[in-house]
Simulated assay, not measured.
Amino acid sequence: MELTIYLAGEIHSNWREEIKEKAKSLDLPLKFVGPMENHDRSDMIGEEILGEQPDKIFRDEAASSINNLRTQVLMQKSDIVVALFGKEYKQWNTAMDASAAVTLGKPLILVRPKELHHPLKELSRKANVTVENVDQVVKVLSYIFEDK
C-alpha cells in the first residue's frame, strides 16, 4: 500500500526534502505532492498561461486561480495532509490548506513549534495529530505501516 502525502506549508526552506529523505531512508511507501515550490513560477503561471495581465492584482488573481486548482486536485488525491507552520514566514496559505484538508475530511498532521501553540490552538484541535518537528511527522507516518 502506497500513501500519497500532500506537504502544505512555506516553500522557502528545505523541510519537504527532510521529510522525503527520512521517509526514503525508512523505506516507507510514500509519494509526496504539494504546491509549486518554484516561487517565481508560481507567481507568474497566470501570465504564462493566460497572457500579460493589466496590473499586479490581476497577475496575482490569475496565478492564484491556477495554483488553487493545483492544490485542490493534488489535495483531493492525497491520503494525508501535512501542514507545516514555521516561525520565519507568513503562513496564510498553510492555514488555508490545513483548513481545506479538515473540510475535505483528509487526515491532517499539523507541524508547529511550541511558540505557535496559542495562535494555532483551534486548528491544532481539528488536526488528527499535532507535532513540533519533521522527525515527529516521519515517526507518525512510519507508525501507520507497523504491523506488530
Rank of each mutant, 00 (worst) to 15 (best):
N133A: 09
I66Q: 02
L26P: 05
M96Q: 07
A8E: 00
I57Y: 08
Q136P: 05
L84Y: 05
Y143V: 06
K139C: 03
I80V: 14
R59G: 02
R59K: 14
K126T: 06
L28K: 03
D43K: 09
R70C: 02
T103A: 13
A23T: 04
A8S: 06
V73Y: 14
D43G: 03
V73K: 14
M1W: 09
I49W: 10
K77E: 13
S124N: 08
G105D: 03
I19D: 00
A95P: 04
A83T: 06
L110D: 04
E52S: 08
V134S: 08
F145L: 09
L28R: 02
S78V: 04
H117N: 14
K106S: 05
K114C: 06
P54H: 04
K31L: 10
S64F: 06
Q53E: 09
D27K: 07
D27H: 07
Q76C: 12
E146N: 11
N38W: 03
M44Q: 15
E21V: 10
I11E: 07
V129T: 06
A62F: 01
H12M: 10
G86L: 00
E48A: 14
L84K: 09
G46Q: 03
P107G: 00
R112G: 04
S13D: 15
A101V: 05
G51N: 07
L116N: 07
N38M: 05
M44T: 15
K22H: 10
S13Q: 13
E61A: 10
E52D: 08
D79E: 08
Q76H: 14
N133I: 12
P113K: 06
H12F: 15
A98H: 01
K148Y: 09
V102I: 11
T103M: 10
S25E: 12
K77S: 10
F85L: 08
S25Q: 13
D55K: 00
D55R: 01
I49Y: 13
I144P: 02
N128R: 10
V129N: 00
N38L: 06
P29S: 07
R70L: 11
L108R: 05
D55V: 00
L141V: 09
S65C: 03
S142N: 14
A8M: 00
K87W: 07
H118A: 13
L3S: 03
V138Y: 00
E21T: 13
Q136G: 06
P54G: 05
D147R: 08
S65I: 01
H39A: 15
I66D: 03
V81C: 05
S65N: 02
A62L: 01
P113I: 05
M75Q: 01
E122Y: 12
I109T: 06
R125L: 12
I57P: 00
P35G: 12
I11A: 08
